[in-house]
Design a binder for these strands. Structure first.
Lengths: 216, 216, 216, 216
DNA sequence: AATGAATGAGCTTTCATTCAT
DNA sequence: TATGAATGAAAGCTCATTCAT
């Protein structure tokens, strides 16, 4: 019989992660001290260690949550839509999400995680699967497009998928550096690129609604 | 009259920066201790402090050098070549450079710098000008292309330039995570994209030599 | 009218002390945390503090129990038996008791108490009376032996009693370090020593039964 | 080329160990904080960590030194003297050494090491060889005595050697508890015991000089 | 009465930097 | 000038104890 509800424990964990997210975004993982997180949460040091055995585990938990959030975006991408339409939708949704001010806190932490992955295998696995999964999905989508003729043949689908991922990553980075970045303009340029790259199959590319994806 | 020659001082500075680069690439800025750098150089702690007043200044010097190296790549890009050709060359040269094994050490440090910029204004200025300058150059190039009809109108040149930069940044990141990445494949996909995007002006896109740029 | 019976309270106290004994034997007083004891008992932290106001008091209670157990062994030693016989019986009973596997848990804790006595006056008093009482009993016994001629004159009875105590203490220590120690062999050597030291008064030393002592 | 002489480094290490010895004797290993040792040495925390990588290593170094000191006492015991004489000399020298006020600091630490051995394998090995080596030496000596008839047959030499070790250990413990203990009286009782136990071979036991042992 | 989450002082250890030699 | 031993503030983490529920 737990003295406090599972919800309560979850809420506490959330509080800590939110506080850590704020601190990490501000100062980075290494410059953020446990005291900073203690101060941000208003809890005591001991309380935090009840939920996370070490500072490192808070970072790992942040990395995991990051991954879960990113992974959700691509969840509906296997639909039977035309490749070009799907690509456009993916671009609109995944890039468009960066415009949400509620998500802004995560941008800076994402970049920190990229760097941290280089020296922490645990985080590397998380961020790498955060890259490999989208690449696999997009490559499959491009392969399908090549079969139905909407995507030019003679292009390595995986390499092209990497480019798509890069277009996403670059925006994350640029927006982390400059929160005021014109994301809609960026999306416009990306859509234009896709339009040129994929053969439109009836519907006009630039006017697609984003509703092909379930969880927009 | 200086006791030791300027060359000697330069050489020592280089030694320190090389050692720091190795350490930073391995462990990141924060996990690298001055003792690590001391051990890597074979010098004494005191000697290093004679060349850099603080650890932070070594990082800043690394950031500066990083910027100088990156900036060089775009130096010859203002030529009067067709926009599409120039873009292809830029892609080949700047992306192709990442394949050079001698440059590999820098990749991991570059990603570290991206993260570090978020909390160090000094580094932010360096990395941001490392982004803004290419964007300005490419945007100008695209604007020229739009004027001569080789680049589609109705696209924000700055936004499109950002996408180009993102394509570069994403590759840097992906290669930092996986040194064995297929860079040539990636370049192929990028060139294909450019081919679709720009109207070829006589010469066939995919066969351009990279010699338009001076310092390849 | 008490809510719970005295027996119940006693039983819980016992549980705690048993758990503490197990923990202390394993990890020592200082390395044992209250959480260890909580886990070992299966009770809550609060419950334990209801029975012992502080960790220190558990240690003190253990010390007290230790003393009570040891003191019992010598209880019947004032009998009017010949000094040599009594010494032999004391040796057999007090040393022989160490062979009891049920008592093994206490050995390691005994050594811990010896060390702890050096910095805790409360424990010092307990362990010192655990030494002084046997010394007084054995010294009296030797003095009696000197009067009746069975023990050599010209020997300080207290010093000799200290040697007897040492022979006991040394075995405790050696067995704490090595639970597989040959205790019977050790007892044999001690008996041989006593045989040489005391003049046998009719009965042959080595064949004495241990039943002179009441609580064997 | 070391900046400071080896002697200097040795001296610094000594200082730390002396300070630690004082602290450990006063408060035990666990209650002694690094700050205590810092204060006792007058050095800084960092300075101490230059000589010992962890607090545990100071304890281990103390244990090692303890062993070296104890081992020295038995070094000359393989002489061709009569077993009884050798035993008496061993008793006089090893027990007598405890009377030296300069050695008093070690007594309390010895008892701490006994307890610590129970939960630290590294220390266990040191203290156990500090027991096993004397036992081996004394057992050999007793075996020799049994061959030449000066020691009673039918006694397990190893068990008897354990008893001798116990007589030493017991005195260490009792003196740790009470620095004012009458050591000479104790030695007298031990010598009397040896006299009864071993057949004197010409010289009268009680009058032996302690000079049989080289390093008294 | 019992619980166990919370507290926070205090622990060991690290490391950028200094400065006597 | 170069050295590297020394500094000491500050880091991450622990754990005896409390007290709202």
């Amino acid at each position: 019989m737990p003295r406090v509800s599972v919800d309560y424990l979850e809420a506490r964990r959330r509080e800590i992660m939110d506080a850590a997210l704020a601190c990490f975004g501000r100062e980075g993982f290494h410059r953020t001290t446990m005291q900073d997180i203690v101060a941000e949460t208003g809890m005591s040091a001991g309380a935090i260690y009840r939920y996370f055995p070490a500072k490192e585990d808070i970072v790992a938990a942040i990395a995991d949550e990051h991954h879960v959030r990113e992974a959700g975006v691509l969840a509906g991408a296997n639909e039977r839509t035309a490749a070009g339409d799907l690509l456009r939708d993916l671009a609109r949704v995944s890039l468009g999400r960066l415009a949400d001010p509620h998500e802004q806190r995560w941008r800076r932490v994402t970049v920190q995680l990229w760097a941290e992955a280089l020296r922490d295998e645990r985080i590397m696995q998380v961020v790498r699967s955060g890259l490999d999964e989208p690449i696999a999905i997009i490559a499959a989508l491009l392969r399908r497009g090549q079969r139905d003729g909407s995507v030019p043949p003679g292009i390595d689908p995986v390499a092209a998928a990497r480019v798509c991922a890069a277009i996403f990553q670059g925006l994350v980075l640029q927006q982390a550096w400059d929160a005021g970045l014109d994301i809609d303009g960026y999306i416009g340029a990306v859509i234009a690129l896709i339009d040129k790259f994929t053969r439109t199959t009836g519907t006009k590319g630039g006017e697609q609604s984003g509703e092909v994806l379930a969880n927009a």
